[in-house]
Write a protein that binds this DNA or RNA. Structure first.
Length: 256
DNA sequence: ATGGTGGCCCGGCCA
């Protein structure tokens, strides 16, 4: 089973690239973030033509998450369901082929110490609480998406250059750690320990070509799935060419 | 070069 995640930075603008990628990577499940499309305008038909059913949680102009699956999508949940401010449409979950799959788009946080940074930490704490009340770590669970946190210094191009900035601070890493402590592991790190393997590069200043990126797109898997991880890839090629997202898709292959 | 690119959708916000 191949499960993927990709911040597409507008599914409307990226539809051709997403279709192309689905055709050659053929994931069983693709979690998408920053779809920037309302549920009513979601392009379900072209994805259906490729064999994928889709579920989305989208507000329109900003944020938005979705799951495309060719192994079913049952028991859909949109958002935390607490009635609290969710800072936009950032969570959708469905059961796909027996795996509870969550597509998440963690708030960016902007500047350290800003209200947005504090809200990012609060959102991560809400995600942990959501897992506590909706799933069990002994079951097959995936939490995949753009976490806007680089788990450790291997995951940034220059720890000194970004030191103290968002995505790499200790409180953000601790909040991510609290989610992992629920019973999840970073599938990529179960398999590989190299540095300089990134999933996002700022559009600005030619950062992609300078290899200045971060690994912030993660597939967190529960123990029953961690034991099945065989292979993972950040598809850097999908960041190249015409009209790319600023993120590359990432996938993990699970043994049956 | 105190910006830079790109998405939303048309002036500025967001990443």
């Amino acid at each position: 089973m191949r499960i993927a995640t990709w911040n597409v930075n507008s599914l409307t603008a990226r539809l051709a690239r997403v279709e192309e990628w689905l055709e050659y990577a053929r994931p069983d499940v693709l979690c998408m973030q920053e779809t920037k499309v309302s549920d009513g305008a979601f392009p379900s038909l072209p994805l259906s033509a490729l064999g994928y059913e889709t579920v989305s949680n989208g507000e329109g102009r900003w944020n938005g998450v979705a799951i495309a699956s060719r192994v079913g999508a049952e028991d859909v949940q949109r958002g935390f369901g607490t009635g609290a401010d969710e800072q936009g449409a950032r969570l959708v979950a469905a059961t796909c082929g027996g795996v509870r799959v969550h597509s998440v788009y963690v708030p960016n946080g902007r500047a350290v110490g800003s209200e947005h940074y504090e809200a990012k930490l609060a959102w991560l704490a809400e995600l942990r609480a959501f897992l506590d009340r909706t799933c069990r770590p002994a079951d097959p669970v995936v939490v995949a998406g753009d976490f806007n946190v680089a788990p450790d210094d291997r995951d940034v191009w220059d720890p000194a250059e970004v030191s103290g900035a968002t995505h790499v601070t200790e409180p953000e890493r601790a909040a991510l750690g609290a989610i992992e402590q629920w019973g999840l592991a970073d599938a990529f790190r179960l398999l590989y320990d190299q540095d300089q393997l990134y999933s996002w590069w700022d559009y600005r200043a030619g950062n992609f070509h300078k290899h200045k990126g971060m690994r912030i797109d993660l597939l967190l898997v529960s123990k029953p799935l961690a034991d099945r991880c065989r292979y993972a890839l950040i598809d850097r090629n999908a960041r190249k060419g015409r009209q790319p997202s600023d993120h590359a898709p990432v996938f993990v292959d699970l043994d049956d």
